[in-house]
Design a protein around this nucleic acid. Structure first.
Length: 884
DNA sequence: GTTCCAACATTTTTT
DNA sequence: ATGTTGGAAC
C-alpha cells in the first residue's frame, strides 16, 4: 500500500495533496474486492429480493439526482445500503468512489456493517463512509496548509487539533476578557452559540449580516474574527471549521475541488432533512461533478432546526437538482394502523411539508391510548404500573375489559355447585381474591370497582377471551419512555427506583464526559505519559491539596524556564523552588506518586487494572468521593460506581495505554448493558429507534410544544415540535400511550397546565381515552391509598376538577364525542377500599350510579344508609357513591 | 487557598 | 427546586 493510499484510508494519516486522477488510481483501494469487470453480467442479485416497489425504484435508479423521501419505519436504511451494494455489484463504482455521509458515528458504523452483510463479505476499502465531520477531517488533513490567517502568514498544519466544547469555551473566555467585556452580561456560552450559528450558515466573520452584528456586546463578528485568528495560531479547529475550511478550499482552489468532484462518482446522504447550510453547500459543490447524488430523508422528521438544520434543503431538492427523481417510501413496516393514523393525523397540520402518508402493513392493533394525570409524580406512578403489567404479560387493555377474578369466581361457583355447596357472594369472593394478590392495592381497587359496577357478566364473557397480543409479555428492553425535556426524567427515575424497576437513561452526559471519569482519565494519562501537561494540570488540585491557581502558575513558569513538562517542572520546583512548606509537601507527594505509578506501569508485573485502582486509591481520589458520600453528597455514590465501572472496563484492554487511545478516538457511550431495562430518553434521542411499547408523557402546552420553541421561532417552532410529536408516535410498534398532567412544577413553581394542542389533533377514531386513576375519585376521598397520598395530599378536589374545565379538555371531549371521556366526577368508578377514603358522613349529599341523588342517613362500617330522591332509602357500599 | 454565599438560568445535541 | 458560577469572606 502506497503512502498516498494510506493517508486516504487512515483518518489520522497525513499526506501530500491528492494528485491528478491518474495518481489517485491507487486511492483507498488496498483491497478492492469487486472489480467492474467481475461484476458485469451476473444474475439479478439476491439482495434485491423482498424490496417493495418504491424501495426497489430507489435502489435501481443509480444515476442522476434522487431524493428518497423515507417516512418513519419504511426501510430507509435498507434501501440505502442496498443501493450501495448495488452500485458496487453492478460495477458502477469502486468502494472508494462512493461518498456516503451520515450525522453520527453510529449511523456510519451501521451503514458499513449492513453493506458488508449484504455483500456477504466484509467490504474493505470504503474509506468515504462517515460523518460529515470525519470526512472533512480526512480531506482537511491533506490540505490544511491552504487555510491561513488573515495576514496569510500563519497556516494550519496537517496535525491540527480539534477543540472540544470545553477548550472552545475557555478560549472564548480569554478573548472576552482581553476585550474587557463584562462576562456576566455577555456569557461566553452565548458567544459560542452565536458563532456556531454563523458557522452553521457558512458565514465568515465579514459575512455576518448587519442585523446580527450587535448580537453580542456590539462586537460579535469582531470577536468571531479574533477567535478564528487565534485558532489558526493554535493550529486548531472547532467542529464548524472542519466543514467551513473544506468549503473555503473548494471555493478558492479549483484544482482541489475538481479533484474531489471527479473522484466521488456517487454521493449518498443520510438524514438529509438535518443538513445545515454549510453541509448543503459542501454537498452541492461535490455533487457538481457527476451529479449522482442520492439524498435520503424525511421532512416530517426534521427536528434539529434549533441547531441549524434547514428543512428548506430537502424541500428545495427538486429545484436544486433539476430532473431529480423523487421516490416516496410510505410502506411502514414498524407500527400498527392506529398508531400510524394517529401520527399521520398530527403531521397533516403542518403546512411546510412535501406530503406523505404512512401505510401500515398490518391490520390489527391497539388504538393510541390517552390519559390525563394530576401531576408528574402520578404520571410516573401510573406508567410504572403499566410497565409492570406489560412485563408480567398482564395486558392493561385486557384488564379493563376482562377481569380474571370474575372467571375465577365463576369457576369457584361451578365447583361449589358440583360439590353441592351453596353459592358464595361474588363481591366477597373477588375482594378476598384481590387481598391475597400481589397486585398493588390501588390497582385492585380500581378493577374491582369497575367490574362490580358493570355487573354484566354476559357481556364480560363475550370479551373474556383476550386477543393474543393482549397477553403478550414484553421485555423491559422493548419499552421506552420518551420525554420532551430532560427534567421530566426525574419523576420516572424516582418512581422506578422506588418500585425497583430497572431502567436506563439514554443520552444525557456521556460516560467519558463525566467529571469523575475525566479526572480519573487525567490521572491515568499523566501516569502513562509524564509529558501530558494538560492532564497533570487538571488533577494537580483534585482532590484539594492546597495547590491552587498560584502554585499552578509557578509550575508553569518553572516548566517553561527549564523547557520541560509540567510534571518535571513541578519536580524541579520541589527540589529547588521557593515554596511554602505545606505546598512543597503536597507537591512532593504528588510527584512521588506519579513517579511510583509510572514505574509500576513500566515494570508491568501488576495487572493494569490493579495499577489503575491503586492510582486512584493512593492519589486520594477515591477517598475524596467516599468522604463526599459520607457527607451525604447524593451524587457521590454514583460517582464511585462510575469509577468502579471505569476500572472494570479496563479489563478488556491490553494495557492502560491501549485503553486511553480507545477512549480518545471513539469516545462512544454505547455500553450495551445486558440487563433487561426500560429505556428513558428524550424524543430527540429516540429518532431512528423503535420500541414495541412507547410512553409519551408530558403532552402539555408549554412543555410540549415547548414554550421556548414557540417564542423563538413562532409558527415554525410549533411545526418543528409537531414533527417531534410525529417522531415520538412513530417510534411505537404496538402500544403507544400519550399522557399529560394537570399541573407541573417548573423552576420550583407549580403551574397549571393544559393538554397539548397536539392532543386535539389526534384523530379521535384512533385514540382510546383511559380513565385517570386519581382523577376518577372525584368523590370524597382526597386520596384513596398510600400510593396516591404521597403525591397529591395537597390537592383539593376543586382544583383537580378545574383541569376539566379547561379549553383543551373541552375541545378534546367535543371531539371524542359521546363515547369519549367523561368528566371525572361523572365517572362511574369509585372507591371501595374504605379505610383510606374519607367517607361521606350523615347529611352529605351523594350520587349513586343506579339510584341517583340522595342524602346520607347513617353509616355502618363500609356501608351507607342513603335516602335517595327517586329510589327511596337503600343501603349501599360507600364505594358506590360519589359526591355530586 | 478554601469555603461559603448569592445570583442566575434552566429544551432539544452531534461532531 | 436545583445546579452552576463567580466573587467576597475567611
Amino acid at each position: 500500500m502506497g503512502k498516498l493510499t494510506s493517508c486516504l484510508v487512515n483518518a489520522q494519516g497525513y499526506g501530500s495533496r491528492m494528485g491528478g486522477r491518474d495518481e489517485s488510481e491507487t486511492l483507498g483501494a488496498e483491497a478492492v474486492p469487486l472489480s467492474r469487470q467481475a461484476m458485469a453480467g451476473r444474475a439479478p442479485p439476491s439482495y434485491l429480493d423482498g424490496l417493495n416497489e418504491a424501495q426497489r425504484e430507489a435502489v435501481e435508479q443509480l444515476t442522476g439526482p434522487v431524493l428518497m423521501l423515507a417516512g418513519a419505519g419504511t426501510g430507509k436504511t435498507r434501501a440505502l445500503t442496498t443501493r450501495i451494494a448495488h452500485l458496487l455489484q453492478t460495477g458502477h463504482a469502486r468502494p472508494d468512489e462512493i461518498l456516503a455521509v451520515t450525522f453520527t458515528n453510529k449511523a456510519a458504523r451501521e451503514m458499513k456493517n449492513r453493506v458488508g452483510g449484504l455483500l456477504g463479505t466484509m467490504v474493505e476499502g470504503m474509506p468515504w463512509i462517515g460523518t460529515f465531520h470525519s470526512i472533512c477531517v480526512k480531506i482537511l488533513r491533506r490540505h490544511a496548509g491552504l487555510i491561513t490567517d488573515k495576514a496569510g502568514t500563519r497556516h494550519l498544519k496537517t496535525n491540527f487539533t480539534i477543540l472540544d466544547t470545553d477548550d472552545q469555551l475557555r478560549l472564548l473566555k480569554q478573548l472576552i476578557q482581553a476585550a474587557h467585556i463584562d462576562e456576566r452580561r455577555w456569557p461566553a456560552r452565548m458567544l459560542a452559540r452565536l458563532i456556531e450559528g454563523w458557522k452553521n450558515r457558512a458565514l465568515n466573520p465579514d459575512k455576518v449580516p448587519a442585523s446580527e452584528a450587535n448580537a453580542y456586546s456590539d462586537n460579535g463578528p469582531g470577536l468571531y474574527e479574533a477567535y478564528q485568528e487565534r485558532l489558526v495560531t493554535l493550529n486548531a479547529c472547532d467542529f464548524g471549521d472542519l466543514l467551513l475550511h473544506v468549503i473555503h478550499i473548494f471555493q478558492h482552489h479549483r484544482d482541489v475541488r475538481a479533484n474531489y468532484q471527479d473522484w466521488f462518482r456517487f454521493i449518498l446522504v443520510d438524514e438529509y432533512q438535518d443538513t445545515n447550510v454549510a453541509q448543503y453547500l459542501w454537498l452541492r459543490r461535490l455533487a457538481q461533478g457527476h451529479r449522482n447524488i442520492c439524498c435520503v430523508g424525511d421532512d416530517d422528521q426534521s427536528i434539529y432546526g434549533w441547531r441549524g438544520a434547514e428543512v428548506g434543503n430537502i424541500l428545495r431538492f427538486e429545484k436544486d437538482f433539476p430532473g431529480a427523481k423523487v421516490v416516496r417510501l410510505e410502506q411502514n413496516y414498524r407500527s400498527t394502523p392506529h398508531i400510524l393514523e394517529a401520527a399521520n393525523g398530527i403531521i397533516v397540520h403542518n403546512r411546510e411539508r412535501l406530503g406523505k402518508s404512512l401505510q401500515s402493513v398490518s391490520d390489527t392493533g391497539h388504538k393510541v391510548q390517552l390519559i390525563g394525570h394530576w401531576d408528574a409524580e402520578e404520571e410516573a406512578r401510573w406508567v410504572g404500573e403499566r410497565i409492570e403489567d406489560h412485563h408480567a404479560g398482564r395486558s392493561p387493555e385486557a384488564r379493563n375489559r376482562y377481569n380474571p377474578r370474575l372467571q375465577d369466581f365463576r369457576q369457584e361457583q361451578e365447583r361449589r355447585t358440583k360439590a353441592g355447596l351453596g353459592p358464595i357472594n361474588q363481591q366477597e369472593f373477588i375482594r378476598q381474591s384481590f387481598e391475597s394478590d400481589q397486585v398493588s392495592r390501588d390497582l385492585k381497587t380500581r378493577n374491582l370497582v369497575t367490574e362490580l359496577q358493570k355487573n354484566e357478566p354476559e357481556e364480560l364473557d363475550m370479551r373474556a377471551a383476550p386477543r393474543a397480543c393482549e397477553v403478550q409479555k414484553f421485555s423491559l428492553d422493548e419499552i421506552a419512555i420518551l420525554v420532551r425535556a430532560g427534567h421530566q426524567m426525574r419523576a420516572f427515575e424516582d418512581r422506578f427506583l422506588a418500585i425497583g424497576l430497572p431502567y436506563r437513561v439514554i443520552g444525557g452526559p456521556r460516560f467519558y464526559e463525566r467529571m469523575e471519569i475525566r479526572d480519573a482519565m487525567a490521572y491515568f494519562r499523566a501516569a502513562v505519559s509524564p509529558d501530558d501537561g494538560l492532564a497533570f494540570e487538571r488533577i494537580v488540585n483534585t482532590p484539594k491539596r492546597g495547590l491552587g491557581d498560584k502554585t499552578r502558575q509557578i509550575i508553569h513558569i518553572a516548566a517553561r524556564e527549564n523547557g520541560v513538562s509540567l510534571l518535571e517542572g513541578a519536580r524541579i520546583l520541589v527540589a529547588e523552588g521557593d515554596l511554602a512548606p505545606k505546598v512543597r509537601t503536597a507537591l512532593r507527594d504528588l510527584c512521588e506518586g506519579f513517579a511510583r505509578w509510572h514505574g509500576l506501569i513500566r515494570a508491568d508485573d501488576l495487572a493494569h487494572k490493579e495499577i489503575a485502582a491503586q492510582i486512584l486509591e493512593e492519589s486520594g481520589y477515591t477517598d475524596y468521593w467516599q468522604e463526599m458520600a459520607a457527607r451525604k453528597d447524593i451524587k457521590a455514590a454514583g460517582r464511585l460506581e462510575n469509577l468502579k465501572e471505569l476500572i472494570d472496563a479496563l479489563e478488556q484492554f491490553e494495557n492502560l495505554q491501549g485503553f486511553l487511545e480507545h477512549v480518545s478516538l471513539i469516545m462512544d457511550n454505547d455500553t450495551e448493558d445486558a440487563a433487561e431495562k426500560v429505556s428513558i430518553m428524550t424524543l430527540h434521542a429516540a429518532k431512528g429507534l423503535e420500541f414495541p411499547v412507547i410512553f409519551l408523557p408530558g403532552w402539555e402546552d408549554g412543555l410540549f410544544p415547548s414554550q421556548q420553541s414557540m417564542d423563538e421561532r413562532g409558527m415554525g417552532g410549533v411545526e418543528e415540535e409537531r414533527r417531534l410529536a410525529y417522531v415520538g408516535i412513530t417510534r411505537a410498534e404496538e402500544c403507544c400511550t400519550i399522557s399529560f398532567a394537570a399541573r407541573r412544577r417548573i423552576y420550583g413553581q407549580w403551574q397549571s397546565t393544559l393538554p397539548s394542542r397536539f392532543i386535539d389533533e389526534l384523530p379521535a377514531e384512533h385514540v382510546e381515552m383511559l380513565t385517570p386513576p386519581a382523577l376518577d375519585r372525584g368523590g370524597f376521598g382526597t386520596a384513596s391509598s398510600a400510593n396516591t397520598l404521597a403525591g397529591s395530599d395537597l390537592a383539593g378536589n376543586a382544583s383537580r376538577a378545574d383541569v376539566y374545565n379547561s379549553p383543551g379538555w373541552r375541545r378534546l371531549q367535543a371531539r371524542l364525542g359521546p363515547h369519549g371521556p367523561r368528566r371525572p366526577y361523572e365517572a362511574e368508578s369509585v372507591i371501595i377500599d374504605s379505610e383510606a377514603v374519607s367517607s361521606p358522613g350523615p347529611g352529605d349529599r351523594v350520587f349513586h350510579q343506579k339510584f341517583g341523588y340522595g342524602t346520607v342517613i347513617a353509616i355502618e362500617g363500609d356501608k351507607l344508609e342513603v335516602a335517595f330522591e327517586k329510589a327511596g332509602i337503600k343501603k349501599v357500599l360507600a364505594g358506590f357513591v360519589t359526591s355530586p
